[in-house]
Amino acid sequence: MSTMRTTTDPSPGENVIALRKERGLTQAQLARKADISLSLLSKIEVGDRALTPAVAAALGRPMGLTLAEVLGKATVAKGKGHSLAALRAALRDYDLPDAEPAAERRFGARMETAREYRKRFNVSRLLDVLPRLLREGTALAHAAHSAAAWTALAEVYSTVYWVAARHRWMDLAELAVARQTWAVQQHTTPLGAAVAARDRAGTYLNFGDVERGLGVVDRGIADAQRSLHGTERDMAVCILNLRGMTLAGRLPDKREARKEADRHIRSARAASDGLGGEDHQVLGLTVGAQNTFAHHFATYVDLGRPDEALGLTDDLPGALAGLPVTRVAPTYVNAARAQLDLGDRDGALAHLALAWDMAPQMARIHPMGREVFRVVSSLHRRGKPELLRLSKLSGIAF
């Protein structure tokens, strides 16, 4: 798999320095406005501490910036500008079915190809195929006007959202979610509506507005419980609670964050139990006990409970076995975050290497992966061969 181009994008911690200086703020002024300690901000800027999403959101508020803006947008990879422009054009033409409707079997095969690229975290190939897939899906939905066709189109929009959110292209992410919601409404399917609510809550997550995001999740759960039954209800409720626990882990009030996170964790577990302990693929998403574990792990790290996160299992590879790379690799990044918080630099580096080896394209754009690498490389005063290797793999200067 291609690692794409070498990047000059700053890490999140480095981005904070630039944003602060652009606004003429001293460290003391920004720390006071953000209600964090000056010592913490200083350590983040010099690379002794990783910038967490919660702290990034706190720093963004007094600067009038979203969480995504503080973490920093990922630039489009070399040679992919045309694909991105074509994707934006296809999004604009949502109600102009200007392509010939593809045969359902051929369109289904292309959908499966896109799912595979997503599972492998191959955003480069995914960006290439999405414009055509979106236009063909639009034509098919307008021509067939069936629940299946509109749900398939909503899944394409959900995949566009996923790509955009990974890069922090939030204008594109918001537009994709709006189109996804529109597609679901053309021929309502409750399960598709649940996924759309999950993605809409994700835009609030990236903007740092976690309270409103949690409101979207709770409303989606109530709708799913009212309109769905059996396995589909468990799938929808689990999917929404996974988003809910992530949002809850970012609440500014840590006591409230823990309470809300634990509520969503319990609900997600109960729903996943109804699925018989197996993970299922639902409109491009993975839902079940293993993915619930992966989100539980990440939420504990966000809550500042690294020892509890690592204590959830003594066999992390086994707990993640069978999940797609899009879930396994970020979990290894979260394990690296947890070990870094506990002072285990070598363990953090080892888990970061696992993540980036299995998803090299993630190395270029994942904000916390880049941030952990920055801190680990700063703390290792003497260069290590593994640091130099990961620097080359990710395109991040060491």
Rank of each mutant, 00 (worst) to 15 (best):
M235S: 12
D346K: 13
A178N: 12
R345T: 12
L51K: 11
R212D: 09
G192E: 08
K119E: 10
R382S: 11
D346L: 11
Y332M: 13
A329W: 08
A319F: 07
R233N: 05
V376W: 11
S272L: 01
M358H: 03
H187Q: 14
A54I: 12
L352T: 00
K21D: 14
G137W: 01
T3L: 14
K119W: 10
H295I: 08
T181L: 07
P190R: 03
A222G: 00
D346T: 13
L153R: 01
E116M: 14
V177F: 06
A194P: 02
H229D: 12
A152R: 09
V46P: 03
I365P: 01
T203W: 06
V372S: 09
R49H: 14
G81L: 04
P324I: 07
M111F: 09
V301Q: 06
N291R: 14
L96Q: 14
L172S: 09
T66V: 03
A261W: 15
S378T: 15
G277A: 03
L242E: 03
M368V: 05
A178W: 12
A143T: 13
W162R: 13
Q180E: 09
R23A: 15
T52E: 06
R258I: 10
A248L: 07
E211W: 10
R61K: 15
Q339M: 14
F297G: 03
P190D: 03
P53R: 00
L393G: 07
P367Q: 00
Q180I: 02
G347M: 07
L134F: 08
G230A: 04
G24R: 08
R226M: 05
I239T: 14
P317K: 00
R49S: 15
L84V: 11
P10Q: 00
L340R: 02
E100Q: 10
A148Y: 12
G244T: 04
A57T: 05
A236F: 06
P10S: 04
K254D: 04
D344I: 01
E232T: 09
R106K: 13
P330N: 01
L283K: 04
K21G: 05
V177A: 04
G343A: 04
E136K: 03
L127N: 13
T26G: 02
R106D: 15
P97R: 03
A85H: 04
K392T: 15
R132D: 15
T331I: 10
L71K: 01
N122G: 04
E100F: 08
G311A: 15
P12N: 07
S267L: 14
P360A: 01
K119V: 14
R110N: 08
L96Y: 12
G277R: 02
Y300A: 02
E371S: 00
L387R: 10
Y300N: 05
